[in-house]
Write a protein that binds this DNA or RNA. Structure first.
Lengths: 187, 187
DNA sequence: ATGTGCATGTAACTGGTTACATGATTCG
DNA sequence: CGAATCATGTAACCAGTTACATGCACAT
């Protein structure tokens, strides 16, 4: 129990709340998001599924297709839903990468919009912190920074600013939506 | 030989072109860039240095500090410079992560500005491709996409757009600079 | 005395990728 | 006839993180 992180495993679990799927299906779905999650291959998916099965978070139903390997349809269990809920609720541990954050985001967005705003707020804090760190870096190194370093920091700042702007906008949008229509979607 | 990628190892090698340093120094420098490279710890740095040493890309000079562990100052060799040049010249393999790209960027920026523009152009292509993939994704899933998925894709698009805008701007800037002052910095 | 900074290192673990093995089916 | 798609899986490998071990010096 309580084995935090392990993003992909949980994310796959999350996908199974939408509908029961085979490993192959999951891969297709993941692929459609392309670069966002950096398309993971079977070597990632199947072991993850096996692990989930062993932990009792999913069940399998083997659907033998006459000729053609039988499909193994995985379905999330009650325990699985519980574990997922806990994972989604817990804050992504601060300096998380973009991939991992996107996974959290997708799952949080599928659940309550409360959870979503929470995640976005936290992300905003994290990115803001990171941006000021970059600003400090640029001042700290000052004149003696190398050309490459400066370009990299500029790049980082540009991205950070874009993230902040988007987050700000989205948070506003969500809060006005909440005013208009208090009890939005739930599980 | 010819063991491509292995980003951190090469990046550290690149840092040594500026000045000879100890592992500790390198870590300080890396830290100053903070989140951009996701501050790697000694467990990353020291083994990398040892590997570089074994490959003959760097040399060590042990500077015994009376009391206090002796510092090990690493210096890049000719072979090291050669290997580095090759690595920097070779295009970062398309769907590279942000971290890895930043490393390339820093090293390329320190070298010739030709190399820099090349890298930025490639990055522009990659990001553009990725953006259109996202746009296709949003259309492909259309109405039936989940809330979370939509938010995630929006997020991705916002970042991609910011990157493209910045890249475009930087490339323009560089090209006008080139006109003004043809033979800029070199090694 | 306690902790922080300097300075080195190693071993175990983890999350993920790549490449392989298998095999029928359908499309060009 | 060959390639692509469906469909499963395993084993080897890799980069990087975490957590430890060591030990002196200086400031609080």
């Amino acid at each position: 129990m309580a084995k935090s992180s392990v993003s992909f495993r949980h994310f796959i679990l999350g996908l199974l709340t939408r509908r029961s799927m085979s490993g192959y299906d999951i891969r297709q779905l993941l692929r459609s998001l392309g670069w966002l999650l950096g398309n993971p291959s079977f070597g990632t998916i199947y072991p993850a599924l096996h692990a989930l099965l062993e932990d009792g978070l999913v069940t399998v139903e083997v659907v033998p297709h006459p000729s053609r390997p039988p499909r193994k349809i995985y379905t999330i269990t009650e325990a699985g839903r519980q574990a997922l809920k806990e994972w989604v609720a817990q804050p992504p541990p601060s300096s998380i990468g973009l991939r991992a954050f996107i996974m959290h985001l997708i799952l949080a967005g599928d659940a309550t919009s409360d959870g979503l705003t929470g995640h976005l707020r936290q992300r905003r804090e994290a990115v803001a912190a990171h941006r000021s760190a970059l600003e400090q870096a640029i001042e700290g190194l000052g004149e003696q920074a190398s050309a490459g370093e400066l370009v990299a920091i500029e790049y980082g700042l540009a991205i950070a600013n874009a993230e902040l702007a988007w987050l700000e906008g989205k948070l506003n949008q969500l809060s006005t939506e909440m005013e208009t229509n208090p009890s939005a979607e739930a599980t």
